[in-house]
């Protein structure tokens, strides 16, 4: 497929992104660059300076709402992408409503307990929806441990092991790899859908 053909398919697609931090901001930007038509991005957080070690934002955006700034950054990269910025805390009640029409959902949270809520909600309330999750991104090096596996409607990217901690911070290279793996998995799903139909 040529990039023109790819763009023509992707512009009709809608992707939900749960979290606009390291995974979410980088994954959203990758999907925007290839021309995914609509991105629904949900996050309640405000940008802090220490987020800049990995998240797709700029120094003059510190103190502002991440979803609003992400929409602005994407606008500057590809104005054809419609970003629906949702300044909300995702819960088991609003996840099925917010992401109902999405072709794929991306799990891009920081905390394991939030990841669990999203995975469990999608498994129990939206069992036919594909969910791409990022699990195990902390630290540096160890490219060989980063992997990809599918289990039912869940696709997992990451080393599934390394947890953030004081001596194991999340940083741009490894978080960026997994965020882009998530975007790559989303593209595969969106383009495969099209080949079948």
């Amino acid at each position: 497929m040529t990039f023109k053909e790819i763009k023509n398919i992707l512009k009709t697609k809608k992707v939900g992104i749960a979290g606009a931090g390291g995974l979410g901001s980088n994954c959203a930007v990758a999907l925007a660059r290839v021309g995914v038509g609509t991105l629904i991005v949900a996050d309640f957080d405000v940008l802090s300076e220490d987020n800049l070690n990995r998240q797709y934002y700029f120094l003059d955006q510190v103190g502002k709402k991440k979803v609003v700034m992400l929409a602005e950054n994407i606008q500057n990269i590809n104005p054809d992408v419609k970003v629906i910025a949702c300044d909300v805390t995702l819960t088991e009640e609003n996840i099925p409503v917010l992401f109902r029409d999405c072709d794929v959902i991306v799990e891009a949270f920081d905390r394991a307990d939030q990841k669990k809520v999203l995975l469990e909600t999608v498994i129990s309330c939206m069992p036919d929806k594909k969910l791409v999750a990022g699990v195990g991104v902390a630290g540096w090096g160890h490219n060989e441990t980063i992997r990809f596996r599918k289990t039912g409607n869940i696709i997992i990217c990451g080393d599934e092991n390394t947890e953030v901690g004081p001596d194991m911070p999340p940083m741009a290279p490894r978080v960026g790899i997994v965020a882009n793996m998530e975007a790559n998995a989303v593209m595969e799903i969106l383009l495969a859908d099209e080949c079948v139909s």
């Binding site: 905390r111 195990g136 991104v137 390394t162």
Partner: peptide, 10 residues
């Protein structure tokens, strides 16, 4: 049986 182990970081 599927077991997914979630860790923080993102």
């Amino acid at each position: 049986l599927d077991v997914i182990h979630l860790v923080s970081g993102g």
